[in-house]
């Protein structure tokens, strides 16, 4: 069936099977491969994207359910002025290693900081608790998200 999803500001219309998962719509139909998948039970969070204003696990939503909605993926973070502070934060604080969980972590991190610019480390930890990272032990992810909170305009460091 035909669906139109606005992804990162652009409307995309595709004819898809109703069973197609949103993560596959983004990756296979639109060719945006920054959104990953890592499990079958909604536990890992590597597939997190925004639907409308909130992060959701795109493996647990059908593309047809996103018809008429706005989706934001990691590819939509960087703006005309360069990297989003959340992206900069992950570089600054060594918040990633293999990079596989990183897009999902950044999408949730961006949301957490938007909701609460004064976010505490404990709140960050809780906020990302539905997303698994096997490389970093989380400390630097927490610091990366806090960096973004503390640098709302980013910095020139990695421009």
């Amino acid at each position: 069936m035909e669906v139109t999803v606005n992804v990162n500001g652009t409307d995309y219309t595709r004819d898809v099977e109703p069973r197609m998962l949103l993560v596959h719509f983004i990756r296979e139909e639109l060719g945006m491969r920054g959104t990953h998948w890592g499990c079958d039970t909604s536990n890992c969070g590597t597939c997190v994207v925004w639907v409308d204003e909130e992060p959701v696990k795109s493996c647990t939503m059908l593309a047809v359910m996103a018809d008429g909605h706005r989706v934001k993926t990691v590819e939509g973070l960087e703006g005309p002025d360069g990297l989003d502070p959340i992206q900069q934060g992950f570089i600054e604080c060594h918040g990633l290693q293999c990079g596989f969980c990183t897009p999902g972590m950044m999408m949730t991190g961006r949301w957490l900081v938007d909701k609460n610019p004064d976010i505490s480390d404990e709140e960050i930890r809780e906020g990302i608790s539905g997303q698994i990272c096997r490389c970093t032990g989380y400390k630097n992810i927490v610091e990366a998200i806090r960096w973004a909170a503390e640098h709302p305009k980013g910095s020139e460091v990695n421009a």
Partner: peptide
């Protein structure tokens, strides 16, 4: 800072 991060934070890793 790691060189490889530039692609990963943009979702441009190639797995």
């Amino acid at each position: 800072k790691r060189k490889e991060d530039q692609r990963f934070v943009r979702g441009q890793g190639n797995y």
